[in-house]
Computed example of a mutant assay.
Amino acid sequence: MIRLLYKNLLFSRYLIYGDTLVLDLWEFICRYLPVASGTPPDLIDIGCGSGAFSLGAALRGYRAIGLSWDKANQAKAESRAKQLALDGLTEFPIGDARHLAKLSFGHARFDYALCMENAEHILNDKKLLSDIADLLKPGGVLIFSAPYRFYKAISDGDNGPFPLEETGWHVRRGYSKIEVRDLLECCSLHCEEIGFFSGFLSQKATWLLRVLSRKVGYKLAWILLLPLRPLVFLFDRFTLGLWPGYSITAVAIKSRFRVHD
């Protein structure tokens, strides 16, 4: 019990050092990623960043693969996995999400897939979601998020212009509810639920973090805003009906019978 508590505290340190939007996404993931017991279910985290969500899934009892093209981030994730004694439950291979079919993960292997704030970076998002569906077992679950098309910009760059080629930045502003549902359903991923995350308080806290970071550096800006975080956590969800969420979220189930185009 003490060891598990220590691991969770250490993981929390990795998670909370980001902006509040990251915490919002982890809260959303936890709603649909139940704590596993027995044989660890297989999970793949597409575009895993520095591996925080993959590590969190492993702490919840999953065997997690975090995929990214970024060698530095993957090395950081592997180091964190060792610190948490999770290297036996996690892998962080280097790979391109645009070419999932070429990677040796095995067909219909995973019980869960995470695709968090990744599809907006990829021009052929339909191929991305189709490839993810191929990796899921029948009945497997996709947990998805992307920017909401109608969010209010936090920074000037949120409004574009968006490049016509993949540069690492967003190639589209985001997705509407209809667009998310159509994207998932055309890939034989039955959309169970669509929602929103990161309301007014979370967005404003993130805006303030970005502004202060330019003036005093990220670490000091993060410390200065730390007292606001409990308020954001407690009250932000009540603003979602009054202010557009920054992210649109979805949970989808892979159909038992795959329909290909």
Rank of each mutant, 00 (worst) to 15 (best):
P41H: 09
S188Q: 11
S37A: 12
D182A: 09
I143E: 02
P163Y: 03
D19S: 15
A101I: 09
S247R: 06
N124W: 02
R237P: 04
F105D: 08
K204G: 06
L4C: 02
W69P: 10
G241P: 02
R109N: 00
S255W: 10
A146P: 03
D42H: 13
P227M: 03
I94A: 14
D19H: 12
P93F: 00
Y148R: 14
W69A: 11
L129R: 05
R258L: 15
L228Y: 06
G199Q: 06
A221I: 06
K7T: 06
L189H: 13
K71H: 10
L212M: 02
E120M: 08
F11W: 15
G241T: 05
I178F: 13
K152G: 09
E192F: 04
F28G: 05
F28N: 04
R210L: 15
F92M: 06
S12G: 12
G18H: 15
A113F: 02
C187M: 03
D125V: 03
P161N: 06
S145C: 00
D134W: 10
S54T: 15
A205K: 11
L228V: 11
K102C: 09
L164V: 09
A252Y: 03
G174T: 04
G217E: 03
F200C: 07
L10D: 01
L189S: 04
D96E: 06
E78R: 13
I253Q: 02
K177W: 06
A52I: 13
G51P: 03
W169R: 15
I248K: 07
L242S: 07
L234V: 14
A252T: 01
V259W: 05
R63E: 07
I178N: 14
I223F: 10
